[in-house]
């Protein structure tokens, strides 16, 4: 008869990733590079919002963009046209990026001379929220057609984010989207969440978002 030996582990599945993410975050702090993890559903306007953001900030800081997708490189090509350094990351079927994959991407893009790196995570409101990428701040975009009930349906992502961009406000008259309700629901999940209603297509509201981001980058990169 063979003995059964029990080895206790007693840790979260995310423990190893959380440790890697913390290490990556402190390395980036040392290099004075601010990593923004941008998350949302597919089609909420992440790339268009980034194009508007880059246009406003690229003269005052060096920016890199990492586009993560399951496949294709259309987003990286779009970003390259804005004049910032950009690379495409393929997750090989995975629905999120973890700290290890983010670190590989950062090595590839080269962060030593960059002040701000934006990681455009895979379009998804569930998995990216569970995996800490090592970013200094997390932001998410919710677009008007998705509906104001999303903070109730996907609570975790609203909890882990520092900023919420509400995009496509130009189509508000055509949808039953209640701006007061979304703010109430989002703050119920996370009272500290900063909320920026914008229209990435026209640029409305983008300045306020950029002011917030500029201030975050400045204080992170300060010695």
């Amino acid at each position: 008869m063979s003995d059964v030996r029990i080895i206790e582990i007693k840790q979260s599945v995310f423990a190893d990733n959380d440790r890697e993410a913390d290490r990556l975050r402190s390395e980036l702090k040392g290099k004075r590079t601010f990593l923004l993890n941008l998350m949302s559903s597919p089609g909420s306007g992440k790339t268009t919002t980034l194009q508007q953001t880059v246009a406003r900030l690229k003269d005052e800081m060096k920016i890199g963009v990492m586009e993560a997708d399951i496949d294709s490189s259309v987003d990286a090509e779009k970003m390259a046209k804005t004049g910032v350094r950009s690379i495409q990351l393929h997750t090989g079927g995975m629905c999120h990026l973890d700290a290890g994959m983010t670190e590989q991407g950062l090595k590839e893009i080269g962060v030593d001379d960059l002040d701000l790196v934006v990681l455009e995570n895979v379009g998804n409101l569930v998995c990216p929220a569970e995996f800490d990428t090592g970013a200094a701040r997390n932001a998410m975009i919710l677009s008007v057609p998705e509906g104001h009930d999303k903070p109730l349906k996907y609570p975790l992502i609203f909890t882990v984010c520092d900023a919420l961009i509400i995009n496509k406000i130009d189509v508000l008259p055509y949808f039953d989207f209640d701006m007061d309700k979304v703010v109430e629901y989002a703050h119920m999940r996370n009272p500290k969440l900063k909320i920026f209603p914008i229209c990435a297509k026209t640029g409305e509201g983008v300045d306020a978002w950029c002011d917030w981001l500029r201030e975050q980058v400045r204080s992170w990169n300060e010695r």
Binding site: S2, R5, I6, I7, E8, I9, K10, Q11, S12, V13
Partner: peptide
């Protein structure tokens, strides 16, 4: 979502 323990036969 925790790993509690593992059992090893040998």
């Amino acid at each position: 979502i925790n790993i509690r323990d593992i059992e090893v036969a040998d």
